[in-house]
Design a protein around this nucleic acid. Sequence first.
DNA 1: GTCTATAATGGGATAGAC
DNA 2: GTCTATCCCATTATAGAC
Lengths: 195, 195
Amino acid sequence: MDTRTALLDSAERAARQRGFDAFSYADLARDVGIRKASIHHHFPKKADLALDLLERYAAAFMDTLAQMEATDISAADKLSAYLDLYRDAVDGGTQVCLCVAFSAGRANLPDPVLQRLNQFHEDSVEWLTRVLTEAGRDGSMSGLNDPAAEAHATLALMEGAQLLSRAAGEITPFDTATASFRCRLSPQKNTRSPR
Amino acid sequence: MDTRTALLDSAERAARQRGFDAFSYADLARDVGIRKASIHHHFPKKADLALDLLERYAAAFMDTLAQMEATDISAADKLSAYLDLYRDAVDGGTQVCLCVAFSAGRANLPDPVLQRLNQFHEDSVEWLTRVLTEAGRDGSMSGLNDPAAEAHATLALMEGAQLLSRAAGEITPFDTATASFRCRLSPQKNTRSPR
DNA sequence: GTCTATAATGGGATAGAC
DNA sequence: GTCTATCCCATTATAGAC
Protein backbone atom coordinates (compact mmCIF):
# COMPACT_ATOMS: atom_id res chain seq x y z
CA MET A 1 0.00 0.00 0.00
CA ASP A 2 0.89 3.63 -0.44
CA THR A 3 2.96 4.92 2.47
CA ARG A 4 0.97 8.10 2.57
CA THR A 5 -2.27 6.16 2.80
CA ALA A 6 -0.85 3.90 5.47
CA LEU A 7 0.12 6.96 7.49
CA LEU A 8 -3.32 8.48 7.11
CA ASP A 9 -4.96 5.22 8.17
CA SER A 10 -2.77 4.88 11.22
CA ALA A 11 -3.24 8.51 12.18
CA GLU A 12 -6.99 8.31 11.79
CA ARG A 13 -7.26 5.29 14.03
CA ALA A 14 -5.07 6.89 16.69
CA ALA A 15 -6.93 10.20 16.56
CA ARG A 16 -10.29 8.52 16.89
CA GLN A 17 -9.19 6.33 19.76
CA ARG A 18 -7.05 8.69 21.80
CA GLY A 19 -7.29 12.15 20.23
CA PHE A 20 -5.21 14.06 17.72
CA ASP A 21 -2.76 15.45 20.28
CA ALA A 22 -2.37 12.10 21.98
CA PHE A 23 -0.38 10.38 19.27
CA SER A 24 3.05 11.33 17.96
CA TYR A 25 5.01 10.90 14.78
CA ALA A 26 6.96 8.28 16.69
CA ASP A 27 3.75 6.27 17.16
CA LEU A 28 2.93 6.49 13.47
CA ALA A 29 6.47 5.52 12.52
CA ARG A 30 6.33 2.42 14.70
CA ASP A 31 2.93 1.48 13.35
CA VAL A 32 3.73 1.94 9.67
CA GLY A 33 7.31 0.69 9.82
CA ILE A 34 9.35 3.70 8.80
CA ARG A 35 11.39 6.27 10.73
CA LYS A 36 9.65 9.29 12.09
CA ALA A 37 11.74 11.76 10.10
CA SER A 38 10.35 10.18 6.92
CA ILE A 39 6.84 11.20 7.87
CA HIS A 40 7.78 14.84 7.45
CA HIS A 41 8.29 14.17 3.76
CA HIS A 42 4.57 13.39 3.41
CA PHE A 43 3.26 15.78 6.05
CA PRO A 44 5.78 18.53 6.82
CA LYS A 45 3.93 19.72 9.92
CA LYS A 46 1.44 17.85 12.04
CA ALA A 47 -1.09 20.54 11.15
CA ASP A 48 -0.79 19.43 7.51
CA LEU A 49 -1.60 15.90 8.59
CA ALA A 50 -4.64 17.15 10.49
CA LEU A 51 -6.05 18.95 7.51
CA ASP A 52 -5.45 16.12 5.04
CA LEU A 53 -6.94 13.68 7.50
CA LEU A 54 -10.10 15.69 7.94
CA GLU A 55 -10.37 16.41 4.22
CA ARG A 56 -10.20 12.73 3.33
CA TYR A 57 -12.65 11.80 6.06
CA ALA A 58 -15.22 14.49 5.28
CA ALA A 59 -15.09 13.80 1.54
CA ALA A 60 -15.63 10.07 2.01
CA PHE A 61 -18.41 10.61 4.53
CA MET A 62 -20.28 13.08 2.37
CA ASP A 63 -19.86 10.78 -0.59
CA THR A 64 -21.49 7.98 1.37
CA LEU A 65 -24.35 10.28 2.34
CA ALA A 66 -24.84 11.41 -1.26
CA GLN A 67 -25.04 7.81 -2.48
CA MET A 68 -27.44 6.95 0.31
CA GLU A 69 -29.64 9.91 -0.52
CA ALA A 70 -29.89 8.87 -4.14
CA THR A 71 -31.03 5.39 -3.17
CA ASP A 72 -34.66 4.41 -3.55
CA ILE A 73 -35.41 3.78 0.12
CA SER A 74 -37.69 5.65 2.49
CA ALA A 75 -36.47 8.72 4.35
CA ALA A 76 -36.82 6.75 7.58
CA ASP A 77 -34.50 4.09 6.26
CA LYS A 78 -31.98 6.73 5.24
CA LEU A 79 -32.02 8.15 8.73
CA SER A 80 -31.65 4.68 10.19
CA ALA A 81 -28.65 4.09 7.94
CA TYR A 82 -27.22 7.44 9.04
CA LEU A 83 -27.44 6.34 12.65
CA ASP A 84 -25.73 3.09 11.76
CA LEU A 85 -22.81 5.00 10.25
CA TYR A 86 -22.22 6.69 13.60
CA ARG A 87 -22.88 3.49 15.52
CA ASP A 88 -20.38 1.49 13.48
CA ALA A 89 -17.78 4.22 13.90
CA VAL A 90 -17.83 3.67 17.66
CA ASP A 91 -16.46 0.16 17.20
CA GLY A 92 -17.78 -1.19 20.49
CA GLY A 93 -16.85 1.86 22.56
CA THR A 94 -13.23 2.23 21.51
CA GLN A 95 -13.54 5.11 19.05
CA VAL A 96 -15.46 8.18 18.03
CA CYS A 97 -15.72 9.49 14.49
CA LEU A 98 -13.01 11.86 13.34
CA CYS A 99 -15.16 14.96 13.49
CA VAL A 100 -15.98 14.27 17.14
CA ALA A 101 -12.33 13.62 17.85
CA PHE A 102 -11.45 16.99 16.34
CA SER A 103 -14.32 18.82 18.02
CA ALA A 104 -13.19 17.31 21.29
CA GLY A 105 -9.46 17.96 21.24
CA ARG A 106 -9.50 21.17 19.30
CA ALA A 107 -6.65 22.36 21.48
CA ASN A 108 -3.82 22.74 19.01
CA LEU A 109 -5.76 22.62 15.78
CA PRO A 110 -4.87 25.42 13.39
CA ASP A 111 -7.58 27.61 12.00
CA PRO A 112 -7.99 25.92 8.58
CA VAL A 113 -8.80 22.64 10.33
CA LEU A 114 -11.38 24.33 12.57
CA GLN A 115 -12.97 25.91 9.53
CA ARG A 116 -13.08 22.61 7.67
CA LEU A 117 -14.64 20.98 10.73
CA ASN A 118 -17.45 23.52 10.86
CA GLN A 119 -17.93 23.08 7.13
CA PHE A 120 -18.45 19.38 7.74
CA HIS A 121 -21.00 20.13 10.44
CA GLU A 122 -22.88 22.46 8.11
CA ASP A 123 -22.88 19.91 5.29
CA SER A 124 -24.16 17.26 7.68
CA VAL A 125 -26.96 19.50 8.88
CA GLU A 126 -27.95 20.29 5.32
CA TRP A 127 -28.18 16.61 4.42
CA LEU A 128 -30.15 15.85 7.56
CA THR A 129 -32.49 18.76 6.91
CA ARG A 130 -33.24 17.49 3.42
CA VAL A 131 -33.90 13.93 4.56
CA LEU A 132 -35.91 15.03 7.60
CA THR A 133 -38.02 17.25 5.38
CA GLU A 134 -38.63 14.27 3.15
CA ALA A 135 -39.55 12.23 6.22
CA GLY A 136 -41.98 14.96 7.23
CA ARG A 137 -43.66 14.84 3.82
CA ASP A 138 -44.03 11.07 3.59
CA GLY A 139 -44.85 10.77 7.31
CA SER A 140 -42.17 8.18 7.98
CA MET A 141 -41.05 9.93 11.15
CA SER A 142 -43.27 10.94 14.06
CA GLY A 143 -43.21 14.11 16.13
CA LEU A 144 -41.46 16.11 13.45
CA ASN A 145 -42.07 19.85 13.59
CA ASP A 146 -39.06 21.86 12.47
CA PRO A 147 -36.74 19.78 10.20
CA ALA A 148 -33.85 22.24 10.45
CA ALA A 149 -33.91 22.33 14.25
CA GLU A 150 -34.30 18.56 14.31
CA ALA A 151 -31.27 18.23 12.02
CA HIS A 152 -29.05 20.14 14.43
CA ALA A 153 -30.42 18.10 17.32
CA THR A 154 -29.72 14.86 15.49
CA LEU A 155 -26.12 15.78 14.77
CA ALA A 156 -25.61 16.79 18.41
CA LEU A 157 -27.21 13.53 19.51
CA MET A 158 -24.81 11.51 17.37
CA GLU A 159 -21.74 13.31 18.69
CA GLY A 160 -22.86 13.16 22.30
CA ALA A 161 -23.83 9.51 22.09
CA GLN A 162 -20.41 8.65 20.69
CA LEU A 163 -18.73 10.55 23.48
CA LEU A 164 -20.70 8.72 26.17
CA SER A 165 -19.98 5.40 24.53
CA ARG A 166 -16.24 5.89 24.29
CA ALA A 167 -16.11 7.12 27.87
CA ALA A 168 -17.89 3.96 28.99
CA GLY A 169 -15.90 1.72 26.66
CA GLU A 170 -19.11 0.07 25.51
CA ILE A 171 -21.60 0.45 22.68
CA THR A 172 -24.55 0.32 25.11
CA PRO A 173 -24.73 4.07 25.89
CA PHE A 174 -24.92 4.84 22.18
CA ASP A 175 -27.80 2.45 21.67
CA THR A 176 -29.70 3.69 24.71
CA ALA A 177 -29.24 7.34 23.79
CA THR A 178 -30.43 6.80 20.22
CA ALA A 179 -33.31 4.43 21.04
CA SER A 180 -35.92 7.19 21.29
CA PHE A 181 -34.91 8.58 17.92
CA ARG A 182 -35.08 5.14 16.32
CA CYS A 183 -38.55 4.57 17.77
CA ARG A 184 -39.83 7.57 15.88
CA LEU A 185 -38.90 6.00 12.55
CA SER A 186 -41.55 3.99 10.72
CA PRO A 187 -40.03 0.78 9.35
CA GLN A 188 -41.74 0.92 5.95
CA LYS A 189 -42.87 4.05 4.21
CA ASN A 190 -41.60 4.88 0.81
CA THR A 191 -43.64 7.06 -1.50
CA ARG A 192 -41.80 5.88 -4.57
CA SER A 193 -41.99 2.13 -4.06
CA PRO A 194 -44.58 1.29 -1.39
CA ARG A 195 -44.64 -2.28 -0.23
CA MET B 1 -8.22 33.06 48.44
CA ASP B 2 -6.95 29.59 49.15
CA THR B 3 -4.08 28.70 46.80
CA ARG B 4 -5.50 25.26 46.28
CA THR B 5 -8.86 26.68 45.29
CA ALA B 6 -7.23 29.21 42.99
CA LEU B 7 -5.36 26.37 41.29
CA LEU B 8 -8.53 24.33 40.88
CA ASP B 9 -10.36 27.33 39.44
CA SER B 10 -7.60 28.06 36.96
CA ALA B 11 -7.28 24.41 35.96
CA GLU B 12 -11.01 24.05 35.48
CA ARG B 13 -11.22 27.04 33.18
CA ALA B 14 -8.25 25.84 31.14
CA ALA B 15 -9.56 22.28 30.88
CA ARG B 16 -12.97 23.44 29.75
CA GLN B 17 -11.56 25.84 27.18
CA ARG B 18 -8.70 23.87 25.72
CA GLY B 19 -8.76 20.38 27.25
CA PHE B 20 -7.06 18.74 30.20
CA ASP B 21 -3.92 17.79 28.30
CA ALA B 22 -3.65 21.20 26.69
CA PHE B 23 -2.63 23.15 29.78
CA SER B 24 0.51 22.72 31.82
CA TYR B 25 1.62 23.38 35.37
CA ALA B 26 3.52 26.32 33.93
CA ASP B 27 0.23 27.81 32.72
CA LEU B 28 -1.36 27.39 36.12
CA ALA B 29 1.66 28.87 37.85
CA ARG B 30 1.56 31.97 35.66
CA ASP B 31 -2.17 32.34 36.18
CA VAL B 32 -2.16 31.91 39.94
CA GLY B 33 1.11 33.71 40.61
CA ILE B 34 3.32 31.03 42.12
CA ARG B 35 6.11 28.84 40.75
CA LYS B 36 5.20 25.63 39.02
CA ALA B 37 7.12 23.46 41.46
CA SER B 38 4.85 24.72 44.24
CA ILE B 39 1.83 23.21 42.53
CA HIS B 40 3.18 19.73 43.21
CA HIS B 41 2.74 20.40 46.90
CA HIS B 42 -1.04 20.61 46.37
CA PHE B 43 -1.34 18.09 43.54
CA PRO B 44 1.68 15.76 43.40
CA LYS B 45 0.80 14.38 39.97
CA LYS B 46 -1.41 15.89 37.32
CA ALA B 47 -3.64 12.84 37.65
CA ASP B 48 -4.35 13.91 41.23
CA LEU B 49 -5.41 17.29 39.95
CA ALA B 50 -7.70 15.64 37.41
CA LEU B 51 -9.48 13.58 40.03
CA ASP B 52 -9.90 16.43 42.53
CA LEU B 53 -11.13 18.66 39.74
CA LEU B 54 -13.77 16.21 38.61
CA GLU B 55 -14.78 15.39 42.17
CA ARG B 56 -15.38 19.03 43.02
CA TYR B 57 -17.24 19.63 39.79
CA ALA B 58 -19.48 16.59 40.00
CA ALA B 59 -20.34 17.22 43.65
CA ALA B 60 -21.29 20.83 43.00
CA PHE B 61 -23.31 19.94 39.92
CA MET B 62 -25.22 17.16 41.63
CA ASP B 63 -25.87 19.45 44.57
CA THR B 64 -27.40 22.00 42.22
CA LEU B 65 -29.58 19.32 40.66
CA ALA B 66 -30.72 18.07 44.07
CA GLN B 67 -31.73 21.55 45.15
CA MET B 68 -33.52 22.11 41.87
CA GLU B 69 -35.38 18.83 42.20
CA ALA B 70 -36.64 19.75 45.67
CA THR B 71 -38.01 23.04 44.40
CA ASP B 72 -41.72 23.46 43.90
CA ILE B 73 -41.68 24.03 40.15
CA SER B 74 -43.05 21.87 37.34
CA ALA B 75 -40.99 19.07 35.86
CA ALA B 76 -40.87 21.01 32.62
CA ASP B 77 -39.36 23.99 34.39
CA LYS B 78 -36.78 21.72 36.02
CA LEU B 79 -35.79 20.38 32.62
CA SER B 80 -35.62 23.89 31.24
CA ALA B 81 -33.35 24.89 34.12
CA TYR B 82 -31.21 21.80 33.45
CA LEU B 83 -30.76 22.91 29.85
CA ASP B 84 -29.80 26.38 31.06
CA LEU B 85 -27.06 24.90 33.22
CA TYR B 86 -25.47 23.38 30.13
CA ARG B 87 -26.13 26.48 28.07
CA ASP B 88 -24.52 28.79 30.61
CA ALA B 89 -21.50 26.50 30.83
CA VAL B 90 -20.76 27.10 27.16
CA ASP B 91 -20.08 30.77 27.84
CA GLY B 92 -20.78 31.96 24.34
CA GLY B 93 -18.95 29.12 22.58
CA THR B 94 -15.65 29.29 24.45
CA GLN B 95 -16.10 26.37 26.82
CA VAL B 96 -17.70 23.02 27.42
CA CYS B 97 -18.58 21.61 30.82
CA LEU B 98 -15.89 19.66 32.62
CA CYS B 99 -17.46 16.26 32.02
CA VAL B 100 -17.50 16.90 28.27
CA ALA B 101 -13.92 18.10 28.42
CA PHE B 102 -12.92 14.88 30.15
CA SER B 103 -15.01 12.67 27.88
CA ALA B 104 -13.42 14.41 24.94
CA GLY B 105 -9.73 14.33 25.82
CA ARG B 106 -9.72 11.14 27.79
CA ALA B 107 -6.31 10.43 26.35
CA ASN B 108 -4.11 10.42 29.41
CA LEU B 109 -6.75 10.17 32.09
CA PRO B 110 -6.01 7.47 34.67
CA ASP B 111 -8.61 4.87 35.43
CA PRO B 112 -10.05 6.42 38.62
CA VAL B 113 -10.91 9.56 36.69
CA LEU B 114 -12.62 7.56 33.97
CA GLN B 115 -14.63 5.70 36.57
CA ARG B 116 -15.65 8.91 38.28
CA LEU B 117 -16.68 10.33 34.93
CA ASN B 118 -18.96 7.41 34.21
CA GLN B 119 -20.36 7.70 37.72
CA PHE B 120 -21.28 11.28 36.94
CA HIS B 121 -22.99 10.22 33.73
CA GLU B 122 -25.00 7.60 35.60
CA ASP B 123 -26.02 10.06 38.30
CA SER B 124 -27.10 12.54 35.64
CA VAL B 125 -29.18 9.92 33.85
CA GLU B 126 -30.85 8.93 37.12
CA TRP B 127 -31.80 12.52 37.86
CA LEU B 128 -33.08 13.03 34.33
CA THR B 129 -35.06 9.79 34.48
CA ARG B 130 -36.80 10.88 37.68
CA VAL B 131 -37.67 14.32 36.35
CA LEU B 132 -38.75 12.99 32.95
CA THR B 133 -40.95 10.41 34.66
CA GLU B 134 -42.51 13.23 36.63
CA ALA B 135 -42.99 15.16 33.39
CA GLY B 136 -44.68 12.11 31.90
CA ARG B 137 -47.11 11.90 34.83
CA ASP B 138 -48.08 15.57 34.89
CA GLY B 139 -48.05 15.82 31.09
CA SER B 140 -45.70 18.80 31.01
CA MET B 141 -43.63 17.29 28.21
CA SER B 142 -44.94 16.02 24.90
CA GLY B 143 -43.93 12.93 22.97
CA LEU B 144 -42.56 11.16 26.01
CA ASN B 145 -42.55 7.38 25.79
CA ASP B 146 -39.60 5.83 27.61
CA PRO B 147 -38.22 8.20 30.30
CA ALA B 148 -35.02 6.19 30.79
CA ALA B 149 -34.19 6.17 27.08
CA GLU B 150 -35.11 9.83 26.86
CA ALA B 151 -32.77 10.58 29.79
CA HIS B 152 -29.80 9.07 27.97
CA ALA B 153 -30.76 10.93 24.82
CA THR B 154 -31.01 14.20 26.71
CA LEU B 155 -27.56 13.83 28.25
CA ALA B 156 -26.08 12.98 24.86
CA LEU B 157 -27.85 15.98 23.35
CA MET B 158 -26.34 18.30 25.97
CA GLU B 159 -22.83 17.01 25.41
CA GLY B 160 -23.08 17.05 21.64
CA ALA B 161 -24.62 20.51 21.57
CA GLN B 162 -21.79 21.84 23.70
CA LEU B 163 -19.24 20.27 21.40
CA LEU B 164 -20.78 21.83 18.31
CA SER B 165 -20.98 25.19 20.01
CA ARG B 166 -17.36 25.25 21.12
CA ALA B 167 -16.21 24.12 17.68
CA ALA B 168 -18.13 27.00 16.12
CA GLY B 169 -17.11 29.47 18.80
CA GLU B 170 -20.72 30.60 19.16
CA ILE B 171 -23.70 29.80 21.34
CA THR B 172 -25.99 29.53 18.29
CA PRO B 173 -25.43 25.82 17.56
CA PHE B 174 -26.34 24.95 21.14
CA ASP B 175 -29.59 26.87 20.93
CA THR B 176 -30.53 25.42 17.55
CA ALA B 177 -29.75 21.87 18.62
CA THR B 178 -31.81 22.15 21.80
CA ALA B 179 -34.73 24.08 20.30
CA SER B 180 -36.78 20.97 19.50
CA PHE B 181 -36.37 19.68 23.04
CA ARG B 182 -37.42 23.02 24.49
CA CYS B 183 -40.51 23.08 22.27
CA ARG B 184 -41.72 19.89 23.86
CA LEU B 185 -41.85 21.53 27.30
CA SER B 186 -45.11 23.08 28.42
CA PRO B 187 -44.45 26.44 30.06
CA GLN B 188 -46.87 25.98 32.98
CA LYS B 189 -47.87 22.66 34.47
CA ASN B 190 -47.28 21.93 38.10
CA THR B 191 -49.43 19.41 39.91
CA ARG B 192 -48.56 20.82 43.31
CA SER B 193 -49.28 24.48 42.67
CA PRO B 194 -51.32 24.85 39.48
CA ARG B 195 -51.78 28.36 38.22
C1' DG C 1 4.11 26.32 51.60
C1' DT C 2 7.00 28.33 48.43
C1' DC C 3 11.24 28.78 46.30
C1' DT C 4 15.59 27.67 42.91
C1' DA C 5 17.62 24.30 40.36
C1' DT C 6 17.67 20.33 37.85
C1' DA C 7 16.61 16.16 36.19
C1' DA C 8 14.36 12.95 32.71
C1' DT C 9 11.57 12.31 29.11
C1' DG C 10 9.26 12.99 24.79
C1' DG C 11 7.50 16.06 21.47
C1' DG C 12 7.85 18.35 16.57
C1' DA C 13 11.00 19.63 13.31
C1' DT C 14 15.38 20.14 10.19
C1' DA C 15 19.92 19.01 7.69
C1' DG C 16 22.11 16.34 4.76
C1' DA C 17 23.74 11.59 3.16
C1' DC C 18 22.09 7.71 0.47
C1' DG D 1 11.51 8.54 -0.34
C1' DT D 2 13.87 6.99 3.44
C1' DC D 3 17.55 7.13 6.46
C1' DT D 4 20.77 8.83 10.69
C1' DA D 5 21.78 12.35 13.56
C1' DT D 6 20.71 16.28 15.89
C1' DC D 7 18.35 20.47 17.65
C1' DC D 8 15.26 22.94 20.42
C1' DC D 9 11.67 23.21 23.22
C1' DA D 10 7.89 22.03 26.56
C1' DT D 11 6.44 18.93 29.80
C1' DT D 12 6.02 16.41 34.31
C1' DA D 13 8.34 15.61 38.26
C1' DT D 14 11.91 15.63 42.18
C1' DA D 15 15.57 17.36 45.59
C1' DG D 16 16.63 20.27 48.90
C1' DA D 17 17.17 25.20 50.78
C1' DC D 18 14.41 28.81 53.06
